[in-house]
């Protein structure tokens, strides 16, 4: 049987779909009986989703027009588009 510490250590692997069928089943057995671990796995899932949302938001503001122009200006002439 997995204990709570084992479940917490495998939480990312579970939500990322990286556990084998047997490992995932052991996790689900524990989660069905343990409110704390269920809540924890939910928190890790929310953490993953919020992290991806925060990084996407950062990307949306990452346009640096001066550097973009500098990169394009360094290209050989024949590579420049119209």
């Amino acid at each position: 049987m997995l204990n709570c510490k084992d479940v917490a250590a495998r939480a990312s692997a579970l939500i990322d779909g990286e556990l084998s069928g047997w490992q995932a089943m052991q996790m689900r057995l524990h989660l069905a009986m343990c409110r704390g671990c269920s809540a924890f796995v939910g928190q890790i899932r929310q953490t993953r989703d919020l992290t991806e949302a925060a990084l996407r938001e950062g990307t949306a503001h990452a346009g640096d027009d001066a550097r973009l122009a500098a990169i394009l200006a360094r290209l050989p002439d024949q590579r420049r588009g119209g």
């Binding site: 990084l55 990452a62 346009g63 550097r67 990169i71």
Partner: peptide, 8 residues
């Protein structure tokens, strides 16, 4: 492509 990946 630049706007998609430069920040990361």
């Amino acid at each position: 492509l630049y706007r998609q990946h430069n920040g990361a």
